[in-house]
């Protein structure tokens, strides 16, 4: 083994620790009496039992799942329409559209969060889960559209022409040929949208009302009542179990579509 390889492995090991160690510690401490070292009364399910007395925490996870699911559904439909239009048609104002599409991608969430919420409040709309969904659709559309555009471009156009040549109209062609063939791309776009929505805290803290998504709930409890941190560690393991499931799903789809 060369010197440079050893150096690489050391650096990589350090970066892996940087990435995974904190999460492992979080899970470990969720089974501890306190959320600091040393371990006391370890392992204990105390905080998991305590968590049951915090329905707001459980609800926050539910709301998160709900927001992410609705966002994903909408963003994927927007993405399919937009991606198809960008890849296959020559609609009026295509260049303007692509420029516009990238805007939410390169704008800090704080700008969008503040702008949208201050605007909606002035219009008399109060923060709510629906407002979070509206905001999340905005930030996920560019990703789903771009992912699906590249999938549509990669799809051999003569397959669609072949369907039309065999008597299928535009809609039948789309339903029987185009859509089944870009399904892996749709799945990738859906998971991407889901993660973005599921992850988001910076935009959602502006838009959330009394019903909070999980990240917003963690953030606000951490800011207001730091003594409840152990509850949050227990809540984290629930979130993590979803995350691991999602990660495996993503990897499987990547494998299939590759």
């Amino acid at each position: 083994m060369t010197k440079s390889s050893i150096m690489f492995i050391v650096v990589l090991g350090f970066l892996l620790i940087l990435t995974f160690f904190p999460i492992a510690i979080l899970l470990l401490l969720s089974l501890n009496e306190t959320s600091t070292l040393p371990l006391r009364n370890f392992p204990t399910l105390k905080w998991y039992i305590e968590l049951l007395r915090f329905p707001a925490a459980i609800n926050a996870v539910k709301y998160s799942l709900m927001v992410a699911s609705v966002t994903t559904g909408a963003a994927v439909i927007f993405g399919i329409c937009g991606g198809y239009a960008l890849a296959r048609t020559n609609f009026a104002g295509k260049k303007i559209f692509t420029g516009l599409l990238l805007m939410p991608m390169v704008t800090p969430y704080i700008i969008m969060g503040f702008s949208l919420m201050s605007f909606l409040l002035k219009m008399g709309v109060n923060p709510s889960l629906i407002v979070i969904i509206i905001g999340h659709i905005l930030i996920t559309i560019p990703y789903t559209t771009l992912v699906l555009t590249s999938r549509f471009i990669a799809l051999d156009i003569s397959l669609e022409e072949a369907a039309m040549d065999l008597g299928a109209g535009k809609f039948t062609t789309f339903r029987k040929v185009t859509l089944p063939l870009i399904m892996p791309g749709v799945a990738v776009a859906a998971i991407l949208a889901f993660i973005i929505s599921w992850e988001d805290v910076a935009l959602a803290v502006f838009l959330a009302g009394t019903e909070q998504t999980a990240p917003v709930y963690i953030y606000s409890l951490l800011m207001k009542l730091p003594k409840f941190v152990p509850i949050l560690t227990a809540m984290s393991s629930i979130i993590l179990s979803f995350a691991i499931g999602l990660a495996f799903l993503m990897r499987m789809i990547e494998r299939i579509s590759a």
């Binding site: 003569s158 072949a162 039309m164």
Partner: peptide, 20 residues
């Protein structure tokens, strides 16, 4: 007459067999 209503059928250069 759009392609799907013409009494013609085309064998594509890439063959365009539906892989699914």
């Amino acid at each position: 007459v759009p392609p799907f209503k013409r009494p013609t059928n085309l064998v594509f250069q890439s063959l365009a067999l539906f892989p699914h």
